[in-house]
Amino acid sequence: MSDTIASPPVKHRTPAGHRFKHPHLLSIEGLSREDILYLLDRGEAAVRLSREQKKREPVLKGRTQINLFFEASTRTQGSFELAGKRLGADVLNMAVAHSSVNKGETLLDTIGTLNAMQPDLLCVRHNQAGAIGLIARKVNCAVINAGDGAHEHPTQALLDAMTIRRHKGDINELTVAICGDVLHSRVARSNIITLGQLGAQIRLVGPSTLMPSGVGDMGVDVFTDMDAGLAGADVVMMLRVQRERMEGSFVPSEREYFHFFGLTRERLLAAKPDAMVMHPGPMNRGVEIASDVADGPQSVIREQVEMGVALRIAVMQTLIEVQDRGTSATIQKAVGGLA
């Protein structure tokens, strides 16, 4: 964790008595500001757990968590796995990216099979937007969206918010510049909503070919010039750019992208002196971010990874509690639907 950035006390906490009622975490859209603050606060507690020598609080002992990644992932899957294990759950990683799906099984058949194994938690990533919501309607356990296409990646946005809050104390009225391939980014979409709910001024920075149509109506300011977009920013959030999109289809070349949109030390000077540099990983050094910035004093990229585990612990605890309270009409309905 970077020690050079001061950590003021957190201003906004969950209002007393707030109850999280959602059976799944499918998206940030639909969560209230209080829901978001609730998860961030629980995440803080989980940071303490993760930093202890014995990192176990076996509240999920005997429960089954299945990580179902239809899209290859190392860090996010590892983060979910570690979070489950720290809570004492039995964690099963299904390598679906290489298995039955390739043999022609439909998504819903795969899900039906898994559901028969009686999991309590499903953490799912899929390359198609809306696929996780479809799955959630067909199972009788809690589902966490670990990223669906270019739709949402809610745990990433929450861990980003946690990281920002730990450094800045309050997200309200911070200027956050989200830079790069917004068009294909679920991270950007979830962050726009999360940070927007928490009162941040959001800027999107990148070439117009990587901006989704109508994004200006999401309450953000759009910049096609990096220096203008970074001017006075409190937080600079870089997005990963897929290399195959930089061969002329969306961007002419990697070198042109880095020249105009890469985060360099010089460019970063346009932001506030204490601006945080973030990246959801994995990074393309020398494409969207220069190495000295990624490894520099303003970077919190490693800390984001740490917050990822803590935040996912918080989300799992919360959803299992909702499940145990049996308040969810949705789950009951889903059970009925499967019968």
Binding site: E247, G248, S249, P252, S253, R255, E256, H259, F260
Partner: peptide
Amino acid sequence: GREMSEIGL
């Protein structure tokens, strides 16, 4: 007519 050139550079 397939890939844009390095318009900025």
